[in-house]
Computed example of a mutant assay.
Amino acid sequence: MNTFIIISENKSDIDDFVDSLIVKNRISKINITEILPEPSIGIAEIRKVKKSLNLKPYGGGKRLIILREMDKATTEAQNALLKVLEEPPVNNIIVLSCLNSNNILPTVLSRCQKVSLVQTVKQNIKSISDIENIFIKLIYSSPGDRIIISQDYSNTKEQFLEFTDNLLSLLSTFITSNKYISRISIKEIADIIRKINKARILIEKNVNYKLTLDILLLGFPTKSAHKTLDK
């Protein structure tokens, strides 16, 4: 499903989620359309969305449509959006944000993947911390140790995809929060993200996931043991 509805009172939390989608899907700024309530979202704004969706994403990538404060949209506008939410064009991601989902039509909610950021943050604090520790261990490890670590996350295709998805989420937080491993540049982080996305594409083509993860982790930059996390 490429349609999301984010429920949060905190704009920065919404921005972080959107940024993670942008990084994960490698969406360029030119392919991002943002709709704001002025003071509400009406039929005219939905026409803008449909017009954007009728155009192919620039450069053959993906497009992101963001509708902010969708709980301020008129009933007519929400109804006009239903067809788009049900069958979004290929390579398009639609994100709705709202403060109160009670003001969103049930037919809109049923067509979106619901993301409650308050719950998500609480549930994922431990997992983000765990994956950060694993990432730190990886970049300080020898090739042999990386192969050993790889064995813990490549027993099944689903395990591989979950592990790499967590890595992508972690790396996106490094970028959005300016928190980087010491002496790892943005370019290096971007290169890791590119390699992860390439590996995930190979897995979807039924390439051996154990070998793919081995090669992926061996391609991570290697850092000296004395280097530490930037705070």
Rank of each mutant, 00 (worst) to 15 (best):
S154W: 08
N178T: 08
F135M: 05
D165I: 09
D145N: 11
S141K: 07
S169E: 04
D191S: 15
L138T: 07
R111G: 05
Y140V: 03
V108D: 09
T176I: 15
N166G: 12
S110W: 00
R146Q: 12
S101Y: 02
F174C: 13
L117C: 06
L138Q: 08
K137G: 00
L138C: 06
I139H: 07
S101C: 01
L99W: 03
I149W: 08
S129A: 08
T120F: 13
L161R: 14
L109I: 13
S177L: 09
L105F: 03
I104V: 15
S177C: 06
L167M: 14
Q151E: 14
S127A: 08
N155T: 13
L170V: 00
E188C: 10
S101E: 09
V108N: 12
Q119P: 00
Y153R: 07
I192E: 06
I139W: 13
S172G: 05
E188N: 10
K114D: 02
L138G: 06
K187Q: 11
Q159V: 03
Y180C: 10
S150Y: 00
I94F: 11
I181E: 08
F135A: 07
T156P: 04
Q119K: 03
I93W: 05
I175G: 01
I149M: 12
K179G: 00
S169N: 13
S110K: 00
Q123L: 10
D130W: 01
E132V: 00
Y140G: 07
S101V: 01
L167E: 01
I134E: 15
C98T: 05
N92S: 15
R146G: 10
E132A: 08
D191K: 09
S141C: 04
N100K: 12
I184N: 04
I139P: 07
T164A: 10
T173I: 08
E132D: 09
E158M: 10
T107E: 06
T176H: 04
V108Q: 05
L161D: 13
N155Q: 15
T156M: 04
I181L: 15
S185Y: 09
R146E: 02
T164P: 05
F160I: 06
K179E: 12
I181R: 09
N166H: 10
D130T: 03
K187A: 11
Q151R: 12
T173P: 05
Y180I: 08
I186N: 13
P106L: 09
S127R: 13
S129D: 14
D145S: 14
